[in-house]
């Protein structure tokens, strides 16, 4: 019988509303636990329940890692839509939207400052800006950061978070992989250390250039780190990927990272490495 009358009726219960006044509670993306916002910030956006490291904005990252007195440089370098690239939106429009959303001109900021008293030049990728994609601006700012390191004889630290090369700049974005790798090679030749910190997610053209060329490679826990993304691989091989594939712990096991460091220990660890390696 297809249309049997149900013997019972479903009475919608009034949903018990959990009290979440705007801005007071945060829900963990991973385990769904509600966390008091003050605790969430105190734990540096790491879930106290499941240790999930939520994405940190570039400015928050700076505050967390660098000592006081940070100086941004080359902040005026801006992308241009030299191909007239239009998909569902024009590239110019995408840039404008991203600039409004993030307050940055492009997907990286470079700064001079110190970590635990040790001088560094640091680059912080901003995933909120067009997925942290690498175009001409990122290439140029990394190249200039390396020049600064060589001139001032200070180590380089880059915090990566990127979806890869920026399609809207066509093959020119691919060339930024060559440009940044050539810069890192010069830094290496000059005998100056370079530490990269891989944060969620680090993929594509960034993984296949400066992110994996560091003298010491650190990742936060559970970060997605890959060249080809999981969806592309699943489509290619036609099967589901194993749990934890391409995450920090997986890469450590396969010998592709030096260490996994939780966010709350990152600053101390970086300070120690800088001291032991160079200062």
């Amino acid at each position: 019988m297809l249309f049997r009358k149900p013997k019972y009726a479903t009475i919608p219960l009034p949903k018990k509303k959990i009290e979440t006044p705007e801005g007071l509670w945060i829900k963990c993306d991973e385990c769904g636990e509600l966390i008091y916002k003050k605790d969430w910030h105190a734990s540096q956006m790491v879930c106290p329940e499941c240790n999930y490291h939520a994405r940190l904005g570039a400015k928050e990252r700076l505050q967390l890692i660098m000592d006081e007195g940070v100086e941004e440089f080359n902040q005026g370098i801006k992308s241009v839509d030299f191909l007239g690239f239009i998909d569902s939106k024009s590239y110019s429009q995408r840039l404008e939207d991203a600039q409004k959303k993030t307050g940055f001109l492009d997907a990286i900021i470079t700064v001079k400052g110190s970590i635990q008293g040790y001088r560094v030049v640091a680059g912080i990728l901003c995933f909120d800006f067009m997925g942290g994609s690498m175009g001409s601006v990122m290439g140029e700012k990394i190249a200039l950061a390396v020049n600064e390191c060589i001139k001032e004889n200070v180590p380089l630290v880059i915090f990566c978070a990127s979806g890869g090369a920026r399609m809207q700049e066509g093959t020119m974005s691919l060339m930024q992989m060559a440009k940044t790798s050539a810069s890192i090679a010069r830094l290496s030749e000059a005998g100056i250390p370079y530490i990269s910190v891989l944060t969620h997610p680090t993929t594509g053209g960034v993984t296949a250039s400066f992110a994996t060329l560091a003298d010491i490679i650190i990742a936060e826990p559970k970060v997605l780190i890959c060249f080809a993304g999981p969806r592309v691989i699943e489509q290619t091989i036609g099967q589901k990927l194993p749990e934890g594939f391409q995450r920090s712990e997986f890469l450590l096991k396969h010998g592709l990272l030096d260490m996994i460091v939780p966010r709350k220990e990152m600053k101390d660890t970086l300070g120690n490495i800088l001291k032991m390696l160079y200062y």
């Binding site: 801006k78 001409s136 700049e169 060339m175």
Partner: peptide
Amino acid sequence: YQKMGKFIVE
């Protein structure tokens, strides 16, 4: 390779 890239400086 250092010359590769198109951008403006404000």
